[in-house]
Write a protein that binds this DNA or RNA. Structure first.
Lengths: 149, 149
DNA sequence: TTGCAACTTGCGACCGGGTTGCAAGTAGGT
DNA sequence: ACCTACTTGCAACCCGGTCGCAAGTTGCAA
């Protein structure tokens, strides 16, 4: 009964996150749910250290949090980004529309990544450019300070 | 006389590097000259660890090499770049033509940075884009694999 | 509901890049 | 040649990132 009760009162979010994990073939463990929930609730990408500060107070080990971040990243539920300060930050993966190439706006202050519409960028080709550029095999990043920062 | 002799036979490069350092208000110490020479001779940006491997064999301390890399970077003679693998790499600063904005091609494999002509990139503006993009306060990076890699 | 294999966790330890304090040594202007 | 400010070597430290292992959980299947 205790188990049944606690299941009944768990927040809709928690149930949703559980589904998300299971559909990614990941077990829904407390640590995993906490990590996912924390990342989804955070206003910006969190570093491993920040996550440890939030969830590590005797609740979860830093190695556990680290491995969960890796699991979520490998599963594609979370993106690992580098703001440029040599610290990995983790953000929930945005809705999948990455099948088609498009430029990204990367905030150099908060590390946030924003997708820009494909139509808004054009590159004139020239023969002396790297092959990767000519064949459009590049990730286009506009790096600057976002509106919030 | 010994001093005079060794000065006489020093390579043209060495003399040039000495000038470079002095014009940047940096003392021309052996370690500094070695670091600058190594970076200029290298075909690609070197990490601190690589530099230690090349020059550290009993010749210079890793802290010394580290501080010299920092000094050169601060002085603008060297650029510190991040390939994305969380290791700083140092490359001699290219001839200054960075007064006007232009896109960069960053090789995600070797870390090399190449400047592209301004005219070859055009960004269509839209009202819902970040202010930084609209005001062109962004560094445009095309990230891919360069021709050599 | 129970059983069990596979997966997770906590702990402890390690690694390596990056960084600093301090005392001894050196570059270079005068 | 001299003197001062800048450099060096050494030794240590910090911290993010990782891993091995034994104990604890999860969730499929019976």
């Amino acid at each position: 009964m205790v188990a049944a009760f606690s299941t009944a009162v768990q927040s809709p979010d928690l149930a949703q996150h559980k589904k998300t994990l299971r559909s990614a073939s990941l077990r829904a463990t407390p640590a995993r749910l906490a990590v996912l929930g924390e990342l989804l609730a955070a206003p910006r990408p969190l570093s491993h250290a920040e996550l440890v500060a939030h969830l590590g107070q005797g609740r979860f080990d830093r190695a556990t949090l680290y491995r969960n971040l890796m699991d979520l990243t490998r599963a594609g539920l979370v993106n690992r980004v580098d703001r440029g300060d040599h610290v990995w930050r983790f953000a929930p993966a945005p809705a999948r529309h990455h099948d088609r190439a498009h430029p990204h706006f990367v905030c150099v202050t908060c590390g946030d990544v924003e997708c820009l519409p494909t139509a808004n960028l054009a590159i004139e080709q020239a023969v002396d450019m790297p092959r990767a550029v000519r064949s459009a095999h590049v990730d286009v990043q506009l790096r600057g300070v976002c509106d919030r920062c």
